[in-house]
């Protein structure tokens, strides 16, 4: 197991370096002079040249990469042309909001997909299963931003009981920043008003994001459970008089979760990137929205930072998922067929 973990970590490092090279190359081959864009068309040429030197744009590409990568490792992505601040400061401000959103959304879809999947399998081919199936097809087919708009209309206009904009109501003082996750920070400082307010604000955007993965995984869990119910080892265990609850809890559940966990991990890792429209709609000050704005403004440093961070998060999540799968499945953990 230890060998497996170190192998995966090692691979992860390689992938991050690969991504960074790719991003760097892309950011340098796109047309347009970043220095000129930063200063605007009317700036004098000497100022542009000055800035080019400052950004090391006058050096050969490999040297530029070394400058850039050593900065990245120290968390220095340079200045954002757009916000005129160090990119890292922007990231520190916007990333926690997206992480909080993704974590809560992940919690929602993991929890409810397991419940729905178990119910659908337990009552397969009955009306319960039918309803869950119908809901699932709808939930999978409708994109997150449509769900977001519908929720927005519903709770912003028709039935305004849950806040629909931002992370916190304006009349509530935000807790001091510790982790940047308002729910965590407010709990840590014992500020329950802020905690519940933040939770309410989280609900709709994370629900909008959770709907797709939720129903997809409920379907996967249901089909993997029903598949495994027909397996010979279940009929054999039944034949030895193993009690129904042990068969369900032990013999069936563990093998059935293996495919679901992999998909959950992928979905969770993609949440952050996919959060853009949902963040826009709910005015959620997240990094996904920030990243898209950076792209529209050709803010290269900011774009690189967002992609490197998303890439790193994706890899870390995948490693964690692989470890969970390996702990469930001895065939992966110990190698072999």
């Amino acid at each position: 197991m230890l060998l497996y973990i170190s192998k995966r970590l090692f691979q992860g490092v390689f992938v991050v370096v690969g991504i960074s090279i790719l991003i760097f190359i892309i950011s340098r081959v796109v047309p347009g002079d970043p220095a000129r864009m930063a200063l605007g068309p009317r700036a004098p040429q000497y100022a542009v040249d000055e800035l080019r030197r400052e950004m090391h744009l006058d050096k050969p590409l490999p040297v530029q990469y070394c400058y850039w990568f050593s900065g990245v490792i120290r968390g220095d992505f340079g200045k954002s042309i757009n916000t005129k601040r160090p990119v890292m400061a922007d990231v520190k401000e916007f990333l926690p909001a997206t992480i909080e959103l993704a974590l809560f959304s992940g919690f929602l879809f993991i929890f409810f997909s397991i419940i729905l999947g178990l119910l659908a399998a337990r009552y397969r081919d009955t009306w319960v299963d039918g309803i869950i199936r119908a809901l699932s097809y709808t939930g999978i087919a409708v994109p997150a931003f449509v769900v977001a708009v519908i929720l927005m209309l519903l709770f912003g206009y028709v039935w305004p009981i849950i806040p629909v904009l931002g992370r916190l109501s304006s009349d509530i003082t935000a807790p001091p920043v510790i982790t940047g996750l308002i729910t965590v920070d407010s709990l840590a400082t014992g500020n329950f008003t802020a905690f519940f307010d933040a939770l309410k604000h989280l609900l709709l955007p994370s629900l909008a994001l959770a709907v797709g993965p939720l129903f997809q995984e409920a379907r996967i869990l249901r089909s993997s459970l029903t598949d495994n119910m027909g397996k010979e080892y279940i009929s054999v265990a039944t034949g030895y008089g193993i009690s129904g609850s042990v068969i369900m809890r032990k013999y069936l559940l563990k093998p059935s979760f293996i495919p679901v966990v992999s998909v959950m991990g992928l979905d969770f890792a993609s949440l952050m990137g996919n959060a853009f429209l949902v963040e826009r709609i709910f005015n959620w000050p997240g990094i996904s929205r920030y990243g898209i704005n950076a792209m529209l403004n050709k803010d290269l440093n900011a774009i690189s930072a967002v992609i490197v961070i998303f890439g790193a998060i994706f890899i870390v999540v995948n490693i964690i998922v692989d470890l969970i799968v390996a702990s469930l499945d001895p065939r992966i953990r110990l190698g072999g067929k």
Binding site: E232, Y233, V236, Y251, K254, P255, I258, L328
Partner: peptide, 9 residues
């Protein structure tokens, strides 16, 4: 081969 549960010893 199918009679034994693959994820338990």
């Amino acid at each position: 081969s199918a009679a034994l549960n693959p994820v338990f010893t």
